[in-house]
Design a protein around this nucleic acid. Structure first.
Length: 645
RNA sequence: GCCCAAGUAGCUCAGUCGGUAGAGCACAUCCUUGGUAAGGAUGAGGUCACCGGUUCAAAUCCGGUCUUGGGCUCCA
């Protein structure tokens, strides 16, 4: 009888008898660990806690605190939900039920969508299954055997998975209570481990996300090993809702969307417009200081232009119908590139002129399906902070690296803690030689690697004219939105016959880069509102300070202060209503005004202000000029937070 | 586009069994002049999303349209 030699994450090793399981190991370490253990990682592979460990290996006991532990926990929860659903709705066909970032879902084919009352019934049944403390068992079977069984049962989705996705000879089935499901596993030891759960939503979801296939009904849920964790989750959701840009946009009067104007069309109210102007001013300064020229282009162009660019072939589903002007048809623009290309063709260029960088805050209109419109994040009319670089093939790589750095510099000015970078490759509908695509993808990859940026690959996510790098930022509810995009393009220069005169006097074809750094001003603003939770840094705050007189006697002094501060370039107003100071403070706090300047008899006599910072309270009194200087410095440095000490 | 839910005052929301609509906040006027998150009184404010149907009678029941919200590739 041989033993197995186990190495634990802390580096210590121990010898266990043959046939030992993850649970045995956990028990030998501490009873608490044994209680909290969900699964075990053996030599990098996640296994069931009761699986025998058959050789020497590094072993890690997984609890809910680990990402893998959470995934197992939620996956098992999905099985329990599926059991409840199949019992209550015997005709339901099972599709898939994976864990997700926070929680799990399961897709079912049912004759009628689930109602809120159905979810309550399912929850009650799930609780009973959990109370059973039913143990999960694994069984290994042949693929052929399962396929036959599922064919007999008419379990078409399982059949499809076994026919198309899971091609191993042997597959596994997990059973607990009266339920069994094809499953790779592993699973929690028993259903009793789940101490709190909630079904959070139900919705339609296409089988394999394909709108041409059957619509299934999906139920989402979350579950936890401690009741408190569920409470925390629900609290977090509530807090996230408070920083939702749609909620804050209304409260702070930043923007308005109304059906009187049209779905997906944004009205920028004065305060939102002010922030937008600050962002755009910053954007223009940075571009002019970094080798860009700024250009403007019209909103419509002859349809011929869009035929030549390929948009009418490859982008038709996002474009509005052309309008007729005299006998000519004109297309409202979904992109700015054909205009910048037409500008390029306005004269001849030399290699000495390259790289050329032309930027424009260009407003474009795209048809988006009604169901996907979302606040400022997905709209039908938006302004891209667009630019096109015209580059020689030799200069391409340096230009990409330079651009990527510039992009990160712009994003960093808004203090985003993190973002996700994607490299998107050739989509199904694309123009250009596939070999060029491969080369271009290599160029983008190289730039990312040179700058040591971690990224994921989005297969088939590129634009129709070239591959791209996207940077996505998450909103308050954890959904991720593409902001920056850097797109390689070798096709449009070809289509429009662009060229430049090279050193040797020969005509050469330039490459193009399309790029947007903020993405769209609308979406970026939405992300920014949520990022700052409406508490904009001073340089962006629409009202930077509000003067609050304690009695009407200080209104005259208040006017003088406002006037002085305005002349110093600050955005200040006066609350001259005959309300109590507490009331004025409350309203200023709710409006998230960074500086509240309180003036009573003491202040008006000594030319001072009593300063209260939003969210931070009373900061004591300051001379008016001193405060002006401090605020101006804070604006100049674009400080993320007000700090007076 | 598809599935589900919702749409009532500027905002947040009540509105029971079908009997012509209500609160709080905000707003206006007046009183109050108060030192760090809501002082008081009075007033004004509505095509109950829109169109159609059932009914003596519709915010309410039925149908349609529009809009909003959640979701629609994360191999078992």
């Amino acid at each position: 009888m041989s033993n197995v030699n186990i190495t634990l994450p802390d580096g210590s090793s121990k010898v266990y008898p043959q046939g030992t399981t993850g649970l045995d190991i956990a028990k030998s370490i501490s009873s608490r660990l044994a209680k909290e253990a969900i699964a075990v990682k053996v030599g990098g592979k996640i296994r069931d806690l009761n699986a025998e460990i058959d050789g020497d290996a590094p072993v890690e006991i997984l609890t809910f605190d680990t990402p893998e532990g959470k995934q197992v926990f939620w996956h098992s929860s999905a099985h329990i939900m599926a059991q409840a659903v199949t019992e209550l709705f015997p005709e339901a066909k099972l599709a898939i039920g994976p864990p997700i970032e926070e929680g799990f879902y399961y897709d079912f084919e049912v004759s009628k969508p689930f109602s809120p009352e159905d979810l309550e019934r399912i929850e009650r049944r799930m609780q009973e299954i959990i109370d059973e403390k039913a143990v999960f068992h694994r069984e290994d079977v042949t693929r052929r055997e399962m396929l036959e069984k599922y064919r007999r049962d008419g379990a078409q989705y399982k059949v499809e998975m076994l026919e198309e996705d899971i091609l191993d000879e042997r597959v596994s089935v997990y059973k607990h209570s009266s339920f069994e499901d094809l499953c790779r596993g592993p699973h929690i030891p028993d259903t009793g481990v789940i101490k709190a759960f909630k079904l959070t939503a139900s919705s339609g979801a296409y089988w394999r996300g394909d709108e041409k296939r059957t619509m299934l009904q999906r139920i989402y849920g979350v579950s936890y090993p401690k009741r408190k964790m569920l409470e925390d989750y629900l609290y977090r959701m509530e807090e996230a809702r408070k920083r939702d840009h749609r909620v804050l946009g209304k409260q702070l009067e930043l923007f308005h969307i109304t059906n009187d104007v049209g779905a997906g069309l944004v009205l920028w109210l004065p305060k939102g417009a002010l922030i937008r102007n600050e962002i755009e001013n910053f954007w223009r300064e940075e571009h002019l200081a970094n080798g860009y020229d700024l250009v403007f282009s019209p909103h419509i162009a002859r349809l011929d232009l869009w035929n030549r660019s390929g948009h009418t072939d490859f982008y038709a589903e996002n474009m509005y119908q052309p309008v007729k002007v005299d006998e000519e048809r004109f297309q409202i623009k979904p992109m700015n590139c054909p205009f910048h290309i037409s500008m390029y063709k306005s004269r001849r260029w030399s290699y000495r002129d390259l790289p050329m960088r032309w930027a424009e805050l260009g407003t474009v209109y795209r048809y988006e399906m009604p169901g996907v419109l979302h606040g400022l994040m997905r709209v039908r009319g938006f302004t891209q902070d667009d630019a096109h670089h015209f580059v020689s093939p030799e200069g391409m790589e340096d230009e990409l690296v330079w651009l990527l750095k510039f992009c990160l510099h712009i994003l960093d000015s808004f203090h985003f803690p993190d973002y996700d970078i994607y490299l998107s490759t050739r989509p199904e509908k694309a123009i250009g030689d596939p070999d060029d695509w491969v080369k271009a993808e290599g160029g983008l990859r190289h730039a990312l690697e040179l700058l040591n940026l971690p990224y994921s690959v989005d297969e088939g996510g590129g634009a129709f004219y070239g591959p791209k790098i996207d940077i996505k930022i998450k909103d308050a509810l954890g959904r991720s939105w593409q902001c920056s995009t850097i797109q390689f393009d070798f096709s449009l220069p070809e289509r429009f016959d662009l060229n430049y005169v090279d050193r040797d006097g020969q005509m050469k074809r330039p490459y193009m880069i399309h790029r947007a750094l903020l993405g769209s001003v609308e979406r970026f603003f939405g992300v920014l509102i949520e990022h700052y939770a409406g508490r904009f840094p001073l340089w962006l705050a629409p009202v930077q300070a509000r003067v609050l007189p304690i009695t009407d006697d200080q209104i005259e002094y208040g006017r003088q202060v406002v006037d002085r501060m305005k002349r110093a370039g600050l955005r200040v107003d006066l609350d001259s209503r005959s309300e109590k100071i507490g009331h004025k403070i409350r309203e200023s706090e709710l409006q998230k005004i960074p500086y509240m300047l309180i003036i009573g008899a003491r202040e008006s006599e000594s030319d001072t202000l009593s300063v209260r910072l939003h969210g931070k309270g009373d900061q004591g009194s300051f001379e008016v000029d001193t405060l002006i200087e401090k605020m101006r410095a804070e604006i100049e440095t674009k400080a993320p937070e007000s700090q007076l000490t």
